[in-house]
């Protein structure tokens, strides 16, 4: 079984980067078995085709806009996914839905796709998440862990977390402003 956990988003645009920050925290906190690959996809496109090909489970962490209040966490799966793309809820879905469409053509689609998303509070041109989003980030990571558990993958808590590049850059930003 192959699993890809893909964080999407732009870390230079505040809460837009929540998906990238979620997978960063996931990897920092948990040791994952070798069949699970975690990728910070940023806002890239075709480079993601290769890791997405023929995976059994694709789990996407992303900022989404469902019309629900900011900070709402959502889990979308199965039949909700195509509808999700039609409504254009996320800023990256052009890329993601196109990539999935390409894999349909080549017959290499992931067997199952789940999106774990958070509705953003603010999308300004600044580094780091808003405090309200940061507060929910751990919950988002726990949803990713629960998603992995659902498909039979146990994430093992590390004795000490690994360093997080973006989280640390953000902290230095906060102290510089203070």
């Amino acid at each position: 079984m192959r699993v890809l956990v893909l964080g999407l988003g732009n870390v230079l645009m505040e809460d837009e980067g929540v998906g990238v920050r979620a997978v960063e925290l996931l990897e920092s906190r948990y040791r994952l078995p070798p069949q699970v690959e975690v990728i910070d996809g940023g806002t890239t496109g075709t480079e993601l085709l290769e890791p997405m090909r023929n995976v059994d489970y694709l789990i996407v962490a992303d900022a989404v806009n469902t019309g629900a209040p900011p900070g709402t966490l959502v889990r979308l799966t199965g039949a909700e996914i195509p509808a999700f793309f039609q409504c254009k809820l996320s800023n990256h879905q052009l890329g993601l839905s196109d990539l999935l469409a390409v894999l349909t053509v080549t017959g290499e689609s992931p067997k199952a796709v789940t999106i774990i998303g958070m509705v953003p509070h603010s999308l300004n041109n600044t580094l780091g998440l808003t405090p309200a989003t940061l507060e929910r980030l751990e919950q988002m990571v726990e949803m990713l862990v629960a998603e992995l558990r659902r498909i039979g993958v146990e994430a093992e808590l590390r004795p000490a977390p690994l360093p997080c590049f973006w989280a640390e850059q953000t902290r230095s930003e906060a102290s510089a402003c203070a």
């Binding site: 645009m13 600044t126 590049f165 850059q169």
Partner: peptide, 25 residues
């Protein structure tokens, strides 16, 4: 685009990590 504003005050040796997020392509 706001990269110019975000980079001010940072270590020049780290700037590439930010700059490569300007664009997904």
């Amino acid at each position: 685009r706001g990269i110019e504003i975000i980079l001010r005050g940072r270590d020049p040796r780290d700037a590439w990590a930010y700059a490569q997020r300007i664009c997904g392509v």
